[in-house]
């Protein structure tokens, strides 16, 4: 049953994204940016965690989950270090995802060649 909720919530996030692609002039980069910003805001308001508890990866895998992670990180950093934590938490929480994306992106670029589409 847990996996059904994961599928449902994760799918719903993507379906909303598709509505934005089909019916607005938003470019993919703007949609991704909006998702992360929305994730930070929903995480900051404390509501996103309910979705994570309910749907697990269905809420953490979409980029809103990345935003929520940043909000969490900021909260922890502020708790620990005070105001300066506001500058630290976002990157700290997102560091694994970012470093992995850069590392694997670089490795893929070294190994593979761009291909024509047809």
């Amino acid at each position: 049953m847990q996996y059904f909720y994961v599928f449902l919530v994760g799918g719903a996030f993507c379906a909303i994204g598709q509505v934005l692609i089909d019916y607005t002039k938003l470019t993919p980069a703007r949609i991704l940016t909006s998702y992360v910003v929305a994730g930070v805001i929903l995480g900051g308001l404390g509501v996103y965690q309910y979705l994570v508890d309910f749907a697990g990866a269905g809420a953490t895998v979409p980029l809103t989950g990345f935003g929520n992670l940043m909000a969490q990180g900021v909260r922890e950093a502020v708790d620990q270090y005070g105001l300066i934590g506001a500058l630290m938490g976002g990157f700290t929480a997102g560091s694994a995802g970012l470093a992995a994306a850069i590392l694997f992106g670089l490795l893929a670029a070294l190994v593979f060649k761009p291909k024509d589409k047809s």
Partner: peptide, 26 residues
Amino acid sequence: LSGPVIAYGVITSVIYGVIYYFTGLG
């Protein structure tokens, strides 16, 4: 392509951090 995602994500998180420090929101 990913630069704006990181930039605006981090900026929003910093703003939230400041709000959280003063109000404890969330």
